[in-house]
Amino acid sequence: MTDTEQLTKRLPNDIGGTSSDPIVWSDHEMAPWEKRCHALADVLDFHKIINTEEKRRGVESLGSEMVGKLTYYERWIVCFANLLYQKQILHPSDLARKMDEVAARFAEPAPSAES
């Protein structure tokens, strides 16, 4: 089989049965944003905005470089953004503006401890 034939048969995530490294036992405490990202995925599914199958395909369509270099929840949130653009629920400029707004909010001097 040629290299290109192999590419047509397997998307980047379709790795079942391929060779790989020994298992390394690994786990990590989820970062707060990762947990929020997971909860967002569930809420998007509950409201039938993005279901699990769309999420999987959305991650696949990030392409092998992003799939390889982004972490698990980084792939999820980028995939959600792409799917929301495709569904014309959000526009990339909306997200850019909102990310600037959220970043600016965090750059403000910290409010008093009680607030």
Partner: peptide, 23 residues
């Protein structure tokens, strides 16, 4: 949002917060 070493939330953290707020 998670605070990174330069004092602000990371890129994907911001993206998660921004997508959520917009929706």
């Amino acid at each position: 949002a998670e605070i990174t070493q330069d004092g602000g939330p990371g890129y994907y953290d911001l993206m998660t917060a921004a997508v959520t707020e917009l929706l």
